[in-house]
Amino acid sequence: MRHQPSAWEVVGRCRTGPQGPRVLEVNARLASGLIGYLVHLATGINLGTVAADIACGRVPLLESSNRGTAASRMFRPATSGILAERRLLPDSPRPWLRRLLWLRDAGDPVAANRLLTTQRSGAVGFAVVTAPTSAEARGHLDGLERNVIIAARSARSRT
């Protein structure tokens, strides 16, 4: 069984026997992926430190030092195939761009399916931005996406 609040993940194990299901264990842990990084950028709170404090019996410091928004977006090609090109067009300075990471190189298979969210889904890269509001963060991501060039050729093509 699994329940995922925004920054923490609760995982449990059950076993079914003659008397029905039985809970064996329930554990809380930090959520995976970029969630801890996004929380840190938006609030200044380090979830790893919070978890360590709790594990050591200390009261964690949960006072936010930032007041803002952090957001991320995966970049995919318009069509599935073999990645031919991926790059970011030059633009004015982007102090709000905290991370741009390419996950695929030319020659790698890529998928246009936006419903897939894992790294293995064929996403070409992702960006992380910060802004005072979520609307501004979405605007940064939209503008950035307009400047990301991703081209894929058919997997059957030889050129």
Rank of each mutant, 00 (worst) to 15 (best):
6 S>I: 14
97 L>R: 01
56 C>A: 15
38 L>D: 05
138 R>I: 09
60 P>W: 00
59 V>N: 10
39 V>G: 01
84 A>E: 15
117 T>V: 13
77 P>A: 13
110 V>K: 05
106 A>T: 14
53 D>Y: 01
68 G>A: 03
140 H>E: 10
7 A>Q: 11
65 S>Y: 01
32 S>H: 14
94 R>C: 06
143 G>C: 09
143 G>A: 15
144 L>S: 02
148 V>L: 09
76 R>Y: 14
57 G>Y: 05
145 E>V: 02
9 E>W: 07
25 E>A: 14
114 R>D: 12
126 F>D: 04
87 R>Q: 10
126 F>T: 06
139 G>Q: 11
61 L>V: 11
132 P>C: 07
7 A>I: 14
159 T>K: 09
139 G>R: 13
49 T>F: 05
78 A>L: 13
61 L>F: 06
36 G>W: 06
4 Q>F: 11
14 C>G: 12
125 G>F: 04
144 L>Y: 05
35 I>P: 00
24 L>M: 12
82 I>D: 00
81 G>L: 09
138 R>F: 12
52 A>Y: 09
65 S>Q: 05
100 L>N: 05
123 A>D: 03
125 G>I: 04
77 P>Q: 08
73 R>P: 00
104 R>C: 08
42 A>I: 04
76 R>S: 12
53 D>H: 07
84 A>W: 05
12 G>V: 02
35 I>T: 15
71 A>Q: 02
5 P>V: 00
133 T>W: 02
86 R>E: 07
125 G>D: 04
125 G>V: 03
14 C>M: 13
89 L>F: 00
88 L>Q: 10
43 T>C: 07
1 M>Q: 09
48 G>L: 11
100 L>R: 05
90 P>S: 08
150 I>M: 02
36 G>T: 09
65 S>W: 00
40 H>D: 13
72 S>W: 12
151 A>T: 15
106 A>K: 11
21 P>A: 02
155 A>P: 00
131 A>Y: 03
96 W>Y: 14
73 R>L: 13
29 R>K: 11
93 P>A: 11
71 A>D: 02
123 A>T: 06
69 T>F: 13
12 G>D: 03
154 S>L: 04
150 I>P: 00
140 H>A: 11
109 P>F: 07
141 L>Y: 03
6 S>W: 12
19 Q>C: 03
5 P>E: 06
157 S>T: 05
20 G>W: 02
123 A>G: 11
70 A>V: 09
147 N>M: 10
123 A>K: 08
100 L>P: 03
147 N>L: 13
146 R>Q: 15
23 V>N: 00
119 Q>N: 11
75 F>P: 01
66 N>L: 07
80 S>F: 03
8 W>T: 11
133 T>Y: 01
80 S>P: 02
128 V>D: 04
